[in-house]
Structures are given as structure tokens and as C-alpha cells.
Design a protein around this nucleic acid. Sequence first.
DNA 1: CTTCTGACGAAAT
DNA 2: CATTTCGCCAGAA
Length: 124
Amino acid sequence: MPFDPKPIYQLVDDIPKGQVASYGMIASLLPGVTARMVGRAMSQLETGSKTPWHRIVQSAGTIAERLSADVQREKLKEEGVDFRKSGAVDWSACRWQGPSQRWIARTGADPERVLEILATWPRR
DNA sequence: CTTCTGACGAAAT
DNA sequence: CATTTCGCCAGAA
């Protein structure tokens, strides 16, 4: 069965402006999905997509270096996300609080399980 | 089938 | 902190 990125986009679409999540955090909420798959899904997005791909960064809070890295930093700054001298976002100030009630209802996820997973972040 | 390459990550050094 | 190492897994070659 081929890899279906839709569930990943559906969850990333749920992240509010000004908040940031890591590839691993998104993956942990989707059974069978790994951080690499999330990164791959983001890279496959078409330019102009409404999905907030810029709100996904590495677990250390740093931006994955590539051609569009500066665009991502710019977009985040526009939303009020601040960066430390190290170049990493300040997790304590902008970490995504978790999926909305709407997402949980729409996907049928177990609310209790979601809380358990959220409790494991941050992992640093 | 094997190898290599990623928008990754955690642990070890 | 910075680097390395190993595990991860879908695709491409």
C-alpha cells in the first residue's frame, strides 16, 4: 500500500498561526508515520499550498537547511515567532499545544491517547 | 534485489 | 554546544 500523505497534511493544517511543531511531534500523533515521512510530505507540497509547512521544524528547534530555509524563517517571524542566538525557535514560547478538538473528532483519534503522546513533548 | 538519498531524531562522545 | 553513529522508511536508480 503506497504512502498516503493526506493524514499528515490534515494534521499540519491544524496548527495555529504563531505555533510550531517538530517533524517528530507530528509523526508521533499518526500511527505508522515517522519523522522522515513528515519531512518527505512537506517537501512534496506544491508551491502556494495552503498547508502551513513553515510551522514544522527539527526537534532541536532549528530550521532544516535547504533552499527554502530562509523563506521559512521569514514566514515564522511574520507570525511573531522569535529565534534564539543559536538559530532555534524558543520552544517554551511557541510550541504547538496539540491537535484541536475538531481534528480529534474528525479523525476519531482517542483523546486520552493524544494526551499521553503530548505529555512526551518536549523530549529535550 | 541492493544501494543511496533525504525538509528526521535520539543517544553517545 | 558540535559531531558522529545508528535507526528509521519511502522512492529512485
